[in-house]
């Protein structure tokens, strides 16, 4: 039997990969994918805890996170398309009209 700890470690590793990806990648869509990865690592943690504690709350929470992630994906991609139409780039380094 695989210990619950391993799932949690996997979740932590995925979360870190996602966080590092957000910080170092420059393509808005890749950054967005990294955010989705982080959300899914949260889901994994919730499901693990839910199983470990024998409580359903965590799994319910996962459903809500998935729904919210879907809504966020819709809005996020729309925003990225809007910016691509005006600037023809999705590189976040070039999206720098405002600073300081």
């Amino acid at each position: 039997m695989i210990l619950f700890t391993w799932y949690l470690i996997l979740s932590g590793v995925l979360f870190s990969i996602g966080a590092v990806g957000v910080l170092i990648r420059r393509n808005a869509i890749v950054i967005f994918m990294c955010i989705e990865l982080m959300l899914n690592s949260v889901n994994l943690a919730f499901v693990t805890f839910s199983r470990q504690l024998n409580s359903m709350d965590g799994q319910i929470f996962v459903f809500f996170i998935m729904t919210v992630a879907a809504a966020e994906a819709a809005v996020g991609l729309a925003i990225i398309i809007a910016i691509y139409r005006n600037k023809a780039t999705v590189n976040v380094d070039d999206i720098n009209l405002m600073k300081w």
């Binding site: 955010i35 809005v75 996020g76 809007a82 910016i83 005006n86 976040v92 999206i95 009209l97 405002m98």
Partner: peptide, 14 residues
């Protein structure tokens, strides 16, 4: 259609 508004939105979203 305003690039600044798009940019604000993208930064806020990400």
């Amino acid at each position: 259609d305003c690039v600044r508004s798009n940019e604000a939105s993208l930064k806020y979203f990400l």
